[in-house]
Nucleic acid binder design. Sequence first.
RNA 1: GCCGACGUAGCUCAGGGGUAGAGCGUUUCCUUGGUAAGGAAGAGGUCGUGGGUUCAAUUCCCAUCGUUGGCUCCA
Length: 647
Amino acid sequence: MKEIQIKLPDNTIKHVEQGSTGGDLARSIGEGLFRASIAAKVDGNLVDLESPIDIENANVELITNKSPEAHEVLLHSSAHLLAQAIKELYPHAKIAIGPALADRYYYDIDVDISINDKELEKIEGKMKELAKQNIQVERVELSRNEALEKFKKMGEDYKVEIISDIAVEETISAYTQGDFIDLCRGPHVPSTGKIKYFKLLSSAGAYWRGDESNKMLQRIYGTAWFTKEDLNQFLINLEEAKKRDHRKLGKELEIYAFDDEVGPGLPLWLPNGTVIIEELENLAKETELKAGYSRVRTPHLTKGDLYEKSGHLDHYEDSMYPSMDVDGTSYYVKPMNCPHHHKIFAAVPKSYRDMPVRLAEYGTCYRYEKSGQLFGLMRVRSMQMNDAHIYCTEDQFKDEFLKVCNMYLYYFDIFGIEKYQMRLSLHDKENLGKKYVDHPELWIKTEQLVREALVEGNIPFEEIPGEAAFYGPKIDVQVWSAIGREFTLATNQVDFAVPKRFDLVYNDENNKEQTPLCIHRAPLGTHERFIGFLIEHFGGDFPLWLAPRQVIILPISDKYLGYAENLKSSMLENNIRVSIDARSEKMGAKIRDAELNKIPIMLIAGEKEQNDNSVSLRRRHEGDLGARRVDDLIPEIIEEIKTRRRS
RNA sequence: GCCGACGUAGCUCAGGGGUAGAGCGUUUCCUUGGUAAGGAAGAGGUCGUGGGUUCAAUUCCCAUCGUUGGCUCCA
């Protein structure tokens, strides 16, 4: 048999028989390595441990259970195990797809019984049984026809559909374990015994191929790990995430509430939440004022004609609240502020000397989001947007666009948002005239302008075709909350279409009328989503300037209530949000409650403090900081608030 | 909107065809204290809503509303 030469990651050269496998290689190095090996990587391609290696001078790497790639293989194999269990329990079930995700996997199945928690338990039990049997997982390669015939015969219609979509030049492979076979590219763990620590997490509905018009399948989510500790850690993290969930904290910290009689997706802002809102608005107003924005205000209610003109009725009527008839004219609650701002632009004639015009408003909008997509504060039906529209000349565009992007970065720094991604959403040609306004050359031109602006501004971004707004390309800013939830926080859109529809013009240097470009921007998104995000981002521990309750005075006993009142007034005079815990409780209890309420500063006042006009300072997360003179402490607190320190 | 789960006191949750339960919170009283829970007593619920089955429904069935895990969508 011919020998070939392969290279290991540490650059050592090894001679092996042609056709020997990653498994053979592992065994030749050591039994322990073999046991830990899950798959192999040959010239960068992940393959099964038992795949023969035929390439001379190949770079071969063994993927052990320590590597993230191995985890993906494990998850994928677990999905197969899940499918196998399902086929054993419900032989008539049809299986669709079952990929690995970041730390979990799912399998979509078509079965006439509904998968509830009880069924999940049953399925998990079956999986354990199959794992214990340590069934060999083997790869088979099939011709297109063989594959089609095989899966057709089994009644696996979804697989047949997938096979038909596989490119002709591609090899079709499947994996078997016992009687079970699944179409799959692989690689997989060598046997089911490798899948030891796993758990099914939930079931959900999912449309076949993610298309609403297709049949809804049942999706089962699960997770799997190489060690018991990893599995437990994963489950603990899930629990921890629940504790940081803005819906839980929002209730506990009395930030917002929903009420059945008010309506779904219509949040009520409690006093604590309103404090946060107003602090955010102050920040935005301050920032926008410095950046040359003018503030405007617009009504919540508007005639349908306006939205016909803007094109919004055309594109979004389904997600607008239905019209109401007022004296025979149809009115809508406004789903966005742009048309009004356009009208404000048009209300006073503009010259090139006025440009750019930047109109800002924390505008209230209402959108009829489908009931199933409401989600705490993150997805609501009434919202206030950190909105503004910038009308500029083409020459000013890049600069204005960049200034907006930099404003994002300025805010991110204040809030300590480190993980974010700018996504440049572009049009796609097929949807011109449908999803998108039909001005091909304008699309290309503005997209290029935006791209250049970003590159010149040194702002990293990703391009995503087919995600633009109907009137122009946009930048979506994705953020991840502390519990891993991803969403679009802010958006920055170019509009080359609607200003024309509104006949917006300015007179240029030659006294000729020109149509301005419009930038829609909302760096802080909506109050609802942004505060939902901030709650999770800070875990309810807001920096002092945002904390609804900044300071609490804890008198040792009611003998010192008078002193506490004096303290309180001198703080109130300085706009510090302060309260007194006047209950006849012991210090331990008062501190505990203040901690649970996540109040950043606790001031303990007893006899000593009363005598020398001081307080004993305790800060959340820092504990007892000892005695402080009131005259020194108050200016420090004011400074911390004023500079919006993150603590 | 679709598929699944859930809805009992202000909160977290237990219960179950026949006066409705706990812990925390709240109120009152006692206690007057030094860095994460002092003590006692009391108040508080048409068991989400509407129908049906039953001698009897908070419990079983149906519908509806709301929340929720996902899917789809997001100007």
